[in-house]
Design a protein around this nucleic acid. Structure first.
Lengths: 379, 379
DNA sequence: CTGTTAGCGCCTTCAT
DNA sequence: ATGAAGGCGCTAACAG
């Protein structure tokens, strides 16, 4: 029946009148119900219910000088990585009574304006490191609101929370070397994002360490080869695979900046008739769900993405509460996940499930990987 | 240097003073720059820049009586479906100058309170149909803010936008019958969500139509079999597959409520040594990315998820602007995607890409599906 | 073109 | 235990 064009203007005054009390009392039953007499409280509550009163958030925010909301800027939402991150973030924010206002940078024509706009409606912002936000812009934001960066570099007033990238990648790379591989290639553009940069650094570290130990492996070169810059898109992965198949690129092992790249490359390599890992070993980073389903299982690094998200939200909340920005980045520990794409043999603990005796199959069983904790700086 | 505990209280008064004008003028350069003299405008702007002034959103919202934000309640974020939806929603909202505050229902202990809280900070809300929000609660919300439901049923004041479910599933089911399959099973719980319910209805429709035409296929029964209720989780899919393998469930074709179920079932079926589609055909719904990568390619129904998201946001915006709620649901057209899991032969247009001549491989090439538009009620 | 002045709806001392 | 009143920061007439 009711078809008011504008949402009903049920204000605190309306309920106050309906309950025969002052707005102060209504406000009290909303915030500190215990300080108001039982019967008045009841009257007020029934008035609230009758009118379906919903206090205006903006008015409250203005009065308490808190938006009670956390901003989050992500590049996009494709793939499970960002979704996981967002899930963890939302959960932690909600636990702290904060709502989250999300913004997807990809495709925004005027990112800067959009971010400023966001900043106006929240108490703090978390931004993904790989988003190309001009430094000065961030610096400006910092003056009005706490800023956190995920998988990026800390800066003055900007706190960073990352997953361990460098030593994990180094370990992964050395693992490949231990398999006797000598023509390694790093797939990814270190310039594209801080985490890719760090992973490449780990790749380089592995070479340095290897040289130090003494060239016990084939020494095509002591220095790490330059990274093969590429976008994180399927077609790029396929392109690289093509170049390897044709011999244009010479490699017997590929260290990919992330699983998506690894998966795309493997897919294409197999399609072109090359064997993985026999002809070329491939490792990734992230441990996406798909990593365990491909043939061969992808050796990679698992990072605690959801925890990363919740930690970011929690730290942001702390900072909104007055905690100073940590200048050193917080880095979460990762875990090496050794499957078969690196050349390791399959555990082969497969066991045809009997419907009666083993109703629930653990998908991990099939290729239970060997995992190696890789420390970080826990908060 | 600056380490103010609380975000700097740079208000419109501060910039006004710094620029030597009144707050009204500052407000004007922010909203209608053209009505203020060029030089004063310049002075104000430099003051804004100097102070890194960010107008308080809450104050603005209170004054204009608009939060300029759209709420969105999703159950969770696993899988590509919700991410896509959210992506479309965010894009459309942003285009309309609205920010989106997201809430994930899964795991919330007090969903009702959370939703009310959300409602206080936005101008309108979109909720996924499968979220178990008590009818009365929604009805109450409707009194204070526009409500839209995605993939759900419309109600008084609640407008719905869906993808076509029923006739798409019917077509899919008949397609299976045309392949000569007679022991079909519907996997999914119609009670769990409106869209699953509609899909099952389509499944039933197919049986009804088949009976009408005259039993030209094997007539195990004229009536559609009861649905196999199950949760949309991998383990459940595996369980069903086990039961089929052991003969506990007799079927030669499976109509799954969605792709995730189909994928899980196929995976397990193959693992148990059954052939798909030879022994049992399987079809899904959604056309997830993975649908085209599995062996055999999954025959399914593609629904325009992203468009669904943006349409919901757009309609919500319209309603906030005063448009009345449509009582009939808007349904978006879907498309049958015929691959091989239903029993159809592979197009086999594979063509080993030559690195030089065909640098970019279209992943669709490999199993280009036959698609059939399935109409809906376009907005 | 610019300044003055009411509110917007709620919270919060300060009285009573 | 409750009411009165000032203010949060900004917008929008209304004057000038």
């Amino acid at each position: 029946m009711a078809m008011s064009k504008h949402p009903s203007p049920v204000t605190i005054y309306a309920v106050a009148e309906a309950a025969g009390v002052s707005i102060a009392t209504v406000s009290r039953v909303l915030s500190r119900p215990d300080v108001v007499a039982a019967h008045t409280r009841a009257r007020v509550r029934s008035a609230i219910a009758d009118l379906d009163y919903v206090p205006a958030g903006s008015a409250r925010s203005l009065a308490v000088r808190q938006n009670e909301a956390h901003g989050l800027v992500l590049p996009e939402l494709s793939g499970p990585y960002y979704s996981e991150l967002l899930t963890g973030y939302e959960a932690a924010a909600a636990d702290a009574g904060q709502s989250v206002v999300l913004m997807l940078a990809f495709g925004k024509t005027d990112l800067v304006r959009a971010v400023r706009n966001l900043a106006a409606k929240v108490d703090g912002i978390a931004v993904l490191g790989s988003i190309g936000l001009p430094g000065p812009v961030l610096a400006g934001l910092v003056r009005s609101t706490p800023v956190m960066v995920i998988a990026g570099d800390p800066a003055d007033g900007i706190e960073a929370v990352n997953a361990e990238n460098r030593s994990s990648t180094m370990a992964l790379t050395r693992h490949l070397m231990d398999h006797g591989r000598s023509k390694l290639l790093f797939l990814g553009d270190p310039q594209s994002a801080p985490d890719v940069r760090d992973r490449y650094a780990g790749f380089v570290d592995a070479y340095a360490a290897d040289a130090r130990v003494g060239g016990r492996r084939s020494r095509a070169s002591d220095r790490a080869p330059a990274p093969i810059a590429m976008a994180f898109v399927e077609s790029e992965g396929a392109r690289i695979a093509d170049e390897i198949a044709t011999g244009r690129l010479d490699a017997d092992a590929l260290v990919c900046a992330n699983d998506e790249v690894a998966l795309a490359v493997i897919h294409r390599l197999k399609q072109l008739g090359l064997r993985v890992p026999a002809d070329v070993a491939v490792v990734g980073f992230d441990d996406l769900m798909a990593a365990r389903y491909v043939e061969p299982g992808l050796t990679t690094v698992r990072q605690p993405v959801r925890e990363l998200g919740s930690l970011i939200a929690t730290r942001l909340h702390d900072r909104i509460g007055g905690a100073p920005a940590r200048s050193a980045p917080t880095v979460l520990p990762t875990e090496l996940v050794i499957r078969q794409s690196c050349g390791c043999p399959a555990p082969d603990i497969r066991q045809p499930a009997d419907a009666a005796s083993a109703p629930l199959a653990d998908p991990n069983r099939r290729t239970r990987p060997i995992t190696v904790q890789h420390e970080g700086v826990t908060p």
